[in-house]
Amino acid sequence: MPSKEKGGMDHITSTGASPDSTAALLRELVAHLRQNRTQLREEWARRITEAQLLVAMTKEEIFAEATSVYDNYVEVLETGSVEALQAYARNLSERIIPRGVETHEVLGIVLLLRDVLARSLFKKYQADFALLNRVLDAYEPAANRIANTVGVSFVQERERTIRQQQEAIRELSTPVLQVRERLLILPIIGVIDSQRARQLTEQLLRGIRTNRAKVVVMDITGVPSVDSTVANHLVLTVAAARLLGATVIMTGVSAEIAQTLVTIGVDLGKMNTVGDLQGGIEEAERLLGYKVISTEGGAAAQVTTQA
């Protein structure tokens, strides 16, 4: 059938693009993006600044990262493999997360690039709507995949950072401290879950070993709630400490926790408990045979004379 718009007809009949033509279009696309690299990259960086994204970074930094992302972007379109981009995105996230760059900013810049490139395609193919459609058919899925890759990499990196910080906090939050020869205190602050309980037991047992401790004061003033599982962990920790020859004195059980534990039916009868940390340390000193006496020259005495 003869047609005035022969080219146009061709394009329309071939929507639903065969893999071959998609590849050809992507090649054309890549060539276009390479050719206009400088201008498009600048346009993108300008739009980023305009949208007030990546405010934590300087203009030069934004331009440098924009260049790398741009080149990686083109490479993904060319090779179809997101691996290099993924690695770069992870590396980028690692660098910018500590500087306070937020998820919306990262998604924002990728979507901006998508927009900048799409607009340049509109411009290039404005005379041929059918061809533009086919170019977009090839471009869109790849662009979506890239946006996804960068976004997911960022979020994963963030989650990894959070996990690391959680671990660090856990490590920090269970110090085993030596107060006197053979006397340790273990102040527990915050929520105890099974993992932390396990770690706590380990650290305590190691502390008992290295300090050759005979008495441990375990203070749970800073623990907001204790359920039967946590109580069980505490009981087991105490039993394990006893096997190593150390007596555990538990202090800081709040009235609410005491009531709750009794209602649940946890039997802490075998535990050696003293009201507060001070009382616990005094009891421990008594057990170890220490006697603490205040001297006349002590701070307390001075305060009284001054008053």
Partner: peptide, 30 residues
């Protein structure tokens, strides 16, 4: 942990007192 905290926060808004907050948080935890 999240459930327990959320439970405690909501219960506190509803007017439960201190020891009931612990009770609720513990039951949620269980």
């Amino acid at each position: 942990v999240i459930a327990r905290q959320q439970g405690r926060t909501l219960a506190s808004k509803l007017g439960f007192n201190g020891s009931d907050l612990t009770v609720i948080a513990t039951a949620i935890s269980e």
